[in-house]
Design a protein around this nucleic acid. Sequence first.
DNA 1: AAAATTTATTTCATATAGTGAATCGTCATG
DNA 2: CATGACGATTCACTATATGAAATAAATTTT
Lengths: 210, 210
Amino acid sequence: MSGLTDHDAALRIASGRKPFVEPLRLGERLKEIRLANRWTLEDVSQRTGLARSTLSKIENDQISPTFTAVQKLIGGLEIDLPQLLSPPKPQTHTLGRRDLTRKGDGQLHPTPTYEHELLSCQLAQKRMIPFKTIVRARDFGEFNEWVRHDGEEFLIVLDGSVLLYTEFYEPLRLEQGDSIYFDSDMGHALVSVSDEDATVLSVCTPNETP
Amino acid sequence: MSGLTDHDAALRIASGRKPFVEPLRLGERLKEIRLANRWTLEDVSQRTGLARSTLSKIENDQISPTFTAVQKLIGGLEIDLPQLLSPPKPQTHTLGRRDLTRKGDGQLHPTPTYEHELLSCQLAQKRMIPFKTIVRARDFGEFNEWVRHDGEEFLIVLDGSVLLYTEFYEPLRLEQGDSIYFDSDMGHALVSVSDEDATVLSVCTPNETP
DNA sequence: AAAATTTATTTCATATAGTGAATCGTCATG
DNA sequence: CATGACGATTCACTATATGAAATAAATTTT
């Protein structure tokens, strides 16, 4: 079992996205794009190969387009999927936000190898994602693939000792108080080597959402 | 200089299609993710609310899932759509940088109120700046003005107790293990309130360089 | 190895998406 | 007001995705 997916999921949640997919007004968004380009349904039909009627229904949320239909859309309109999905960013530069997390009050995300506790998860739109992790893994073999995610990661050992395996380096032993900063798209994995499970604090940069 | 590319481009333009209408092995990708997590179809069914049979057919490219189905997938598996679409990056232009700081080996920056120890300062071009701080200040009066810098800051108390003064909030007492995330252009200042000087770990975002 | 159990695929009925033609609404023109 | 032109929606129908159950394949247990 790999921590990869859960880890990423944790990051995704921490970065402020809802775990459950919101309505996602795809129809509305499509219409926006179409009108922004002064295209008629017929135009879009030409470009995408989808019927006018189909497009109309998609825009009015009367049907949920098939994935192939979505592909035709993004292909025909020459847009990216994120562009189709993400509504224009509000980008509220609110000042003075604050998010307190008392000890032990983080949001738990257990996996077989790691036990994550997400900190400061009240706040969306963060540029850093902090979490505390109890390292359950005891052997590198417990990971069936590298943990890997875009961006950078800072990690400091709070308790115990760990062995940090990375894709391009020899395993590195880290004791309590040691810290490391690395590009997290380099595969990495932690195992505890102290008597008790080690605890580390990590801070990641969120996934790019361009 | 390649005639081929131009030729291909010409064909592309002529056919009105996008550069690469890649097959987009969504099924294959799903299966990868599922197996990577050691999930059974039933497990995924539970998580997503989609029928086993449907999942099987999606994995085997026998159907093109409805967009709502895709949403259930990304919701239930707690992955991002890009993750579902993009096959594991073939060549990640991963740099694989790494910067280790052993306990106490950071770069010291003493001030009257704080004693900073910069961590991971070998590495330039970071998106996060981690440092450990011993809080010498004992009274808010010791600061002549707010500490204030662009970006965001994450802070966790490693030892002792502190009082966090912020521009827009009441002072907040933080004990060992408590953490907080805030916009650091909001004025802030820390004082120790425990017997010994408290120690905190902070991570800041660097100044924007647009 | 056979039986039992778990996991994946296939079948089939049904629900829903996709299509072309008809309809409706709006706007312009005679 | 009628008429036509255009764009969007609705209708009737076909194609296909979905889910429950049956079947097959793989794995574990006895």
